[in-house]
């Protein structure tokens, strides 16, 4: 990200953001609510297009990207949210497989890959459980498994533990660190600084739309 500015109407959300993410890096974006963390993740995911400046992900420049380019880029950029965004009328297996179906992976490879990622997040035994039957921590693990299904090089996590208790939060952090150790870069947004301190990650502080450290 080079000198990125982002406005919504007359409100300035981000100002002059410069951020470079190395491959395999773990970054925690820390800042109070409304500081612009989610917007920044949205810019990397190209859900938001910068008003000014340059956002480049895996060689794709946001200013010239078509919706098709963005779709293909997103297959390599996993994303998880505080509210999990799972399909509640489908089971764990189908939720993860959905990401692979939607990107045109064939059935045999879907099966193999879903079992791989469910094993990675420790949910192989709950593959036929429906989403409402799972705890919050388990639901977030399903969301992480879905984000990993297409083998992304970077995982964006927007307050992934915002709805979870401290023990479950610890489990999710451990999982994110494990994923990072395997080579996937992780960029996680959090509004509490102590979260970041518990992780061996580069801390980037955001306040009022600016990076302050």
């Amino acid at each position: 990200m080079i000198d990125v500015w982002y406005w919504v109407g007359k409100n300035q959300i981000l100002s002059g953001i410069n951020l470079n993410v190395e491959s395999g890096e773990f970054i925690t974006l820390v800042g109070p609510s409304g500081a612009g963390k989610s917007t920044l993740l949205g810019l990397i995911h190209m859900a938001n297009i910068p008003t000014r400046g340059r956002v480049c992900v895996a060689g794709l420049d946001a200013s010239s990207a078509t919706s098709r380019d963005i779709a293909f880029m997103r297959r390599k950029v996993g994303m998880v949210f505080q509210d999990f965004k799972l399909l509640e009328d489908r089971d764990v297996y189908e939720n993860v497989a959905f990401a692979l179906w939607a990107t045109g992976v064939n059935r045999r490879n879907i099966k193999k890959r879903v079992f791989q990622v469910l094993a990675e997040v420790g949910l192989s035994h709950k593959r036929y459980a429906m989403v409402p039957e799972l705890s919050g921590g388990e639901q977030q693990r399903v969301a992480i498994a879905r984000a990993l299904a297409n083998e992304p090089f970077v995982l964006l996590a927007d307050e992934p533990t915002g709805n979870l208790d401290p023990d479950t939060t610890q489990g999710i952090f451990a999982l994110l660190e494990k994923i990072n150790r395997k080579g996937t870069a992780v960029i996680m947004a959090s509004h509490t600084a102590d979260v970041a301190e518990r992780l061996s990650a580069r801390i980037v502080c955001i306040r009022e739309g600016r990076i302050v450290t």
Binding site: A71, M73, A147, A149
Partner: peptide
């Protein structure tokens, strides 16, 4: 929204 999120093309 999830399809869009995980990288399904609009055509798909």
């Amino acid at each position: 929204q999830i399809m869009d999120l995980v990288g399904a093309t609009h055509r798909f």
